[in-house]
Amino acid sequence: MRRAGRGDEDGHGEARSLTPYLLVLPSGLWLLAFLAVPLVLMASLSLQTGNLVDGFQQTFHWQNYTDGLGTYGDKFVRSLWYGLLATAACAALAYPAAYWIAFHGGRAKSTYLFLLLLPYFVSFVLRTISWKLVLTDNGPVLGPLRDHGLLPDGFHVLDTGFAVVSGLTYGFLPFMVLPIYVALERIDPRVVEAARDLYAGRVRAFARIVLPLSLPGVLAGVVMTFVPVAADYVNAEVLGGPRNTMIGNVIQAEYFDNSAYPLASALSFTLMAMLLLGVFAYARALGAGSALEAARR
């Protein structure tokens, strides 16, 4: 963009300085129409009172927020907790896979990545439902185990928090794999060799060189996974049953079933604020330095 100001002498100065803005214009308009405007409308809605029959009026009813937090505080906590668990599980699964592809994938790297992402060409809802089929009490996993008497009475996976976190982990794995893979792929193998040459064993070389250099990818993956996971409602709906609802389910129910638009909006904004705060705090605590460093390389 620094170049944009120059070149006035050749008569194209004005056109040139406008170019970057023109390039941003379409996506800018798109975001304005479908993100900014609805956000403002929802913010307004979250402070209204009324019902579907009599209509809603703007009354700056801040109580919507305190009511929401008071009634559904436990659902917020559960969402953030599940989000944390699923994100951690994603990182634990994604790192070794990304590592192997990046350093040992050879010429078939892109094939392996493609295979890893292949399931995600199937609709998200369909994949979640197929998990339900797999985990159901008489399904292909639990059925035979039960028949052989290997499971205690009343044991089931479906309708537990475990099922929800498993589904979330599976559903959002690519958001973790891809940034980690990109970070690992950028590491010069010679740098790792240099560490080996300087008396670091395999473990040391990993801990001192590979891990720190790939950390920006992990940090990006954590943000990209945690935010959608904490706000998800499909997995809890399909796999969690009534006792494991997340805040996403509450918002959905309040909005579509109870038509409590102001409360649903207030809950949404509360969730957004929590996630934003969380991400910023996280980025400040861990990410900012390494992210800047990664950008410098």
Binding site: R190, V191, E193, A194, D197, P212, L213, E293
Partner: peptide, 30 residues
Amino acid sequence: VPADRRDVNMVFQSYALFPHMNVFENVAFG
């Protein structure tokens, strides 16, 4: 014998310096 247990050291063509460490830490690594 693997590289980390040989008394030879290498200067790489692309230098292969550790990008996340400063000059002192790079030299002090060994």
